[in-house]
């Protein structure tokens, strides 16, 4: 299932802020289904890689303690207008997603 991945960029404090929002349950593996008393299996994003014009600028590791529908933000200085921003993520079940935009 393709999950919605959104990127937003904006100028902030002399740098470009990149915000990524992924539509993802981020299940911890600790919650229980109230009816069946069974644990809901963990399902969360583990890696998120940020690239600008093909160059990796940041590599985030996410754990189950990140809220569902994670919103992750980073800032990069000296990004030119029109530069391409590419995000890829993958979770513990092998699902992945990507999104691309220009500054």
């Amino acid at each position: 299932m393709a999950r919605l991945t959104k990127i937003k960029t904006r100028k902030k404090g002399g740098a470009t802020e990149i915000l990524v929002l992924v539509n993802h349950p981020m299940e911890t593996g600790q919650r229980k289904n109230k009816k069946t008393k069974k644990k809901i299996p963990a399902h969360y994003i583990q890696k998120m890689v940020f690239k600008i014009d093909g160059k990796e600028v940041a590599d985030a590791n996410l754990g189950p303690a990140v809220s569902k529908n994670p919103l992750v933000g980073i800032r990069v200085a000296g990004v030119k207008k029109g530069a391409s921003v590419k995000i890829t993520w993958s979770d513990n079940k092998g699902e992945s997603g990507k999104a691309q935009t220009t500054v």
Binding site: D59, A60, L62, P64, A65, S67, L71, V72
Partner: peptide
């Protein structure tokens, strides 16, 4: 890191060009 969570590490990021800034929403 959240000290009293079942597993303290919530998230981390390696910066290889980005400025020293990180924002996220975490569970406690």
């Amino acid at each position: 890191f959240v000290e009293k969570n079942p597993s303290p590490l919530a998230t981390s990021i390696d910066l290889t060009g980005a400025t020293a800034f990180y924002s996220a929403r975490i569970k406690m």
